[in-house]
Design a binder for these strands. Structure first.
Lengths: 128, 128, 128, 128
DNA sequence: GTGGTCTAGACCACC
DNA sequence: GTGGTCTAGACCACG
């Protein structure tokens, strides 16, 4: 389930964060679903629990999961408060990347295709 | 010309590489144009010459520049593969950001609007 | 009546203690009034009875409530020392926040305005 | 310089954060001044370097210090961007604490006194 | 059982 | 030299 590249330049806790985000955004992990415990996951992917911890704490800070001490970590439902703020940031990022991409010759159609593929992923027909 | 962020998590030699690549692909630096020498550039942006060296060596390895001993470093002619490589990276980034944005509720229209604004911006004086 | 935050970093028994203290010092709970039994309260706020127990025991130790075996738990008469203790804590907090705010450029007037607005708010129907 | 209470309930990395904030806010540590290195500080106060790291990273996240890899950690100058955001939060906190304090009988004069003491600390006459 | 903190010691990239 | 990451193993508080 979690394929990590131990040799990668990206620290493995960041790889973990990315993977988890994908699972949450792709709604493979549903809101309020419990995540594997720090220890269990550590054993499963044979990695130190501290490393999982680091990833989980960052995900919590970013609002993707929430922690109940003594219980576990859970997928956060989308909060409106964080939503607006975050969307603004994403819009800025989008603007930057889109302009760079189009400057280098990417066509409007290429971007539309990306949007479509995302719609399929998120839409009724969950790929899972 | 080269705005570097010393505080960034990216090593500055990598920031240099990225900047140079963009200037080369965007043809701000024309093929066979001579690059500033390691020493002068180091002085200009007050950075350790070793760091510049490292960036130049890596750019040469990747085929973006070539070195003539005793003369200096020069911009290599652009290969399509370079643009392609860059565009692939941008596509991946786009996919990530778009899916995150749409998960948080951004509408297709919002993205289309961003595209339009970029089109307008580039529409007038595209250098290419 | 008791709004607890299960996700908070503060253990919930401490949250309970703080809430109770405020209710007692603010005289929402009057001296010698009977508190809800451990079980009923546990049911009401759907929390482990052990947790309630722990809070009650600590409140007793600190002199805020007293226990009559076979009868239940009761609000102790307020001692000045309790108010004093609480006020000291608040003063420390105030000092920290005020110094941080003024370091970041908040003006004395801004704080005075906050005080005024609080005075207005309390002015009308102070329970005490 | 750093008196830590190893027995305290507050984790020592949080104690460190508080101390550092005080030093920065009190301008004992001036903007762009270099902080002791992770290792040095660790030796000085005989604490594990990882613990210092944790404190430094959090301070960076909160905008109090910035890190230059390979160089060290430095006191951040006040950024306007973070300022506005943070001040809003502080105002809310202030409102909450002030209203609680005044409800419990704290006088306007007590608060004014706190403000004065802060003014002295920050003003021309640095206590150091 | 859960997460949170801490230590000791190691290796890496960067400058 | 600096910070950044990771491991192994320990102890604690919480529910």
């Amino acid at each position: 389930m979690f394929e990590l590249d131990l040799r990668s330049r990206l620290p493995i806790y960041e790889q973990l964060i990315e993977k988890m985000k994908e699972l949450i955004i792709g709604e493979v992990l549903k809101p309020n679903e419990q995540l594997p415990s720090v220890r269990t996951l550590a054993q499963q992917i044979t990695i130190n629990p501290n490393t999982i911890q680091k990833a989980y704490r960052e995900l919590e800070r970013q609002g993707y999961i929430y922690t109940v001490k003594g219980k576990g970590n859970f997928v956060a439902p989308i909060l409106e408060s964080m939503q607006q703020e975050k969307l603004e940031k994403l819009k800025e990022e989008l603007l930057k990347i889109v302009s760079e991409a189009m400057y280098l010759g990417m066509k409007k159609e290429d971007i539309l295709q990306i949007i479509s593929s995302v719609e399929n992923m998120l839409g009724g027909g969950n790929l899972k």
